[in-house]
Structures are given as structure tokens and as C-alpha cells.
């Protein structure tokens, strides 16, 4: 954690390359995937009911 904080300070100064930080990357991808899956689920749950009736 302290390394991350020093990295943050380094980044603000703007010197050198940020090392590591994969935690941030994985959380971004994870949140996106989770949200897309949840949205698909909500679309499926809200699917139009009884499409057979509409066709009659």
C-alpha cells in the first residue's frame, strides 16, 4: 500500500514510469464485465411477456 502511495506521488510529480498498478486495471475490467452481465440479466428479466398473444 505504501508503495502504491509513493507511486501516486511519483505520478503527480510526473517523473518516471508507473510500476505495477494491475489492481486498478483488473478492477476496471471486472466492474465493466459485471455491469454488462447484470444489465443483460435485467434485460432478460424484463423481456416482453407472452409474445404468442401479440402474434394472433
Amino acid at each position: 500500500m505504501t508503495t502504491l502511495m509513493t507511486l501516486g506521488v511519483l505520478a503527480q510529480v510526473g517523473s518516471g514510469r508507473i510500476q505495477g498498478g494491475w489492481g486498478y486495471v483488473w478492477s476496471c475490467y471486472g466492474i465493466t464485465v459485471a455491469a454488462l452481465v447484470l444489465y443483460s440479466l435485467s434485460l432478460w428479466l424484463r423481456r416482453p411477456q407472452a409474445p404468442q398473444d401479440a402474434k394472433e
Binding site: G14, G16, R17, I18, Q19, G20, G21, W22, Y24, V25, C28, Y29, T32
Partner: peptide, 28 residues
């Protein structure tokens, strides 16, 4: 695309691996 971004593309000169967030952030 994400595999290319996470494994194939080089890390950024200044931002390092953190820059790989771009491949999810910018398309969104």
C-alpha cells in the same frame, strides 16, 4: 481486443501497465 490490450500491447512509456485501462475505458 482485451487480450491484445492486456497481454500483447506494450505498457505505456509513462503510465506503465495502468494505461491498459484505456482499452476498456475509451470504447465505453
Amino acid at each position: 481486443g482485451w487480450w491484445l490490450g492486456l497481454a500483447w500491447a506494450p505498457p505505456d512509456r509513462e503510465m506503465g501497465d495502468v494505461q491498459r485501462i484505456m482499452y476498456v475505458h475509451v470504447p465505453l
